[in-house]
Simulated scan of single mutants.
Amino acid sequence: MPYVNIKITDENVSSEDKKALIEGATRLLQDVLGKNPATTVVVIDEVNTDNWGIAGEQVTHRRKRGQ
């Protein structure tokens, strides 16, 4: 039973986007590894940009600077 955990920042990700991520990850595991889609679990965690850091800096501050 494959388990995929996708972590993204919580910045305007639509339900349709999430649906596409779930379908795409499931299809990728089926195509590449022959995994059964019926037993593939995909979880999307949305993380607040205050709780996500890159290069020692919160993503919130990076976004404010345009990075």
Rank of each mutant, 00 (worst) to 15 (best):
Y3Q: 12
V4D: 02
N5A: 13
I6C: 03
K7M: 07
T9D: 06
D10R: 04
D10A: 11
D10W: 05
E11S: 11
E11H: 09
N12E: 12
V13L: 11
V13S: 14
V13T: 13
S14W: 07
S15W: 15
E16V: 11
D17G: 14
K18M: 05
K19A: 14
A20E: 15
L21M: 14
I22Y: 06
I22D: 07
E23I: 04
E23P: 10
A25N: 06
A25S: 10
R27W: 09
R27H: 13
L28Y: 14
L28M: 15
L28T: 15
L29Q: 08
D31T: 10
V32G: 12
V32P: 09
V32A: 15
L33E: 15
G34H: 12
G34Q: 12
N36K: 13
N36P: 10
P37L: 06
A38K: 15
A38F: 08
T39R: 07
T40R: 01
V41K: 11
V42Y: 03
V42F: 08
V43Y: 08
D45F: 07
D45Y: 04
E46N: 00
V47C: 09
N48W: 07
T49Y: 03
T49A: 08
D50K: 03
D50H: 00
N51W: 03
W52Y: 05
G53N: 05
G53P: 02
G56F: 04
E57L: 02
Q58I: 09
V59E: 02
V59Q: 01
T60P: 01
T60R: 03
H61A: 02
K64R: 08
R65H: 02
G66E: 05
